[in-house]
């Protein structure tokens, strides 16, 4: 995986101006989540500084996806708190909160009867209240950013997995979120298309987006993450810099996990 840092993006090169993001901080305080009586997440606390990338790793069933779904309240937390830019996310209406948090899913979840452009534009006019012309114009720009300007009128079934996921990322970004959540965004992709999507994600991080990334791509976590969190059985087992976790795993569980995946 070659995700070495970039030199091409520096000002002065001929490439178009790439706008920067203003990611917000995110903090989880003793977050506990349950499905019925079964607690799948217990007392998770986590701080994500503005504009940084946090990768969450861990075996299946460790509660990684549930954690993401608690942040944007697709699943309501049982107790604890989520602070977005310092304010409790549990005090605002979920619809309002979710406009500020973008999410990208493992299976893309694009709208199959909409073109790529309409997929991106839909929430812009229906949620943000833009005119349809304005929404389409912004959607077109966002698609261009992810390299899909020429595929704007394709429906999802006519796009490869990698292209679909890039449309999904453009769709989330178009809402101008303060935080982006990625739920195993590359797990369903053909291997040769994984890198393109990961590079795109790394680029977002570099431009100042706050990101929480659930991933099985250890190379990505090591190179891009500011913070890596290892979860198992609904708890944070270890958290720290990539070097801390990958080079000096302290817990026996992380050592075993790494020996299985690396």
């Amino acid at each position: 995986m070659s995700l070495a840092s970039s030199t091409n993006n520096s000002p002065g090169t001929s490439s178009p101006v790439v706008e920067t993001f203003h990611g917000s901080s995110l903090e989880l305080k003793n977050l506990t989540m349950a499905y019925g009586d079964i607690e799948v997440l217990r007392n998770v606390s986590l701080t994500v500084a503005p504009g940084t990338t946090t990768c969450i790793i861990g075996p299946s069933g460790s509660g990684k996806s549930t954690l993401l779904r608690g942040i944007n309240r697709l699943h309501e937390p049982k107790s604890g708190d989520v602070l977005l830019a310092g304010e409790s996310a549990l005090q605002v209406k979920p619809d309002i909160l979710r406009r500020r948090i973008g999410m990208v899913f493992q299976h893309f979840n694009l709208f199959p009867d909409h073109t790529a452009l309409e997929n991106v534009a839909l929430a812009l006019w229906s949620v943000k209240g833009m005119s349809k012309a304005e929404a389409r114009e912004r959607a077109q720009r966002r698609l261009a950013e992810v390299g899909l300007a020429e595929r704007a009128d394709h429906r999802p079934r006519d796009l490869s997995g990698g292209q679909q996921q890039r449309v999904a990322i453009a769709r989330a970004l178009a809402m101008e979120p303060e935080v982006m959540l990625f739920d195993e965004a590359t797990s369903a992709l053909d291997p040769e298309l994984v890198k393109g999507v990961l590079n795109l994600m790394a680029g977002l991080g570099k431009r100042g987006m706050t990101m929480v990334v659930v991933t099985h791509e250890m190379g990505f976590a090591r190179k891009v993450a500011d913070q890596v969190v290892f979860m198992d059985e609904g708890e944070v087992v270890e958290a720290g810099t990539p070097a801390d976790l990958f080079d000096n795993p302290r817990s026996e569980r992380l050592q075993r996990f790494l020996s299985e995946v690396l």
Binding site: S2, L3, A4, S5, S6, T7, N8, N9, S15, P16, V18, A144, E145, V146, G147, L148, A149, G162, K195, G196, N199, L200, A202, G203, K206, R207
Partner: peptide
């Protein structure tokens, strides 16, 4: 290949 050529955002971080 297309992707590498397409976007400054993507190709920029792909050295």
């Amino acid at each position: 290949k297309e992707l590498d050529a397409a976007s400054p955002l993507i190709s920029g971080s792909n050295t």
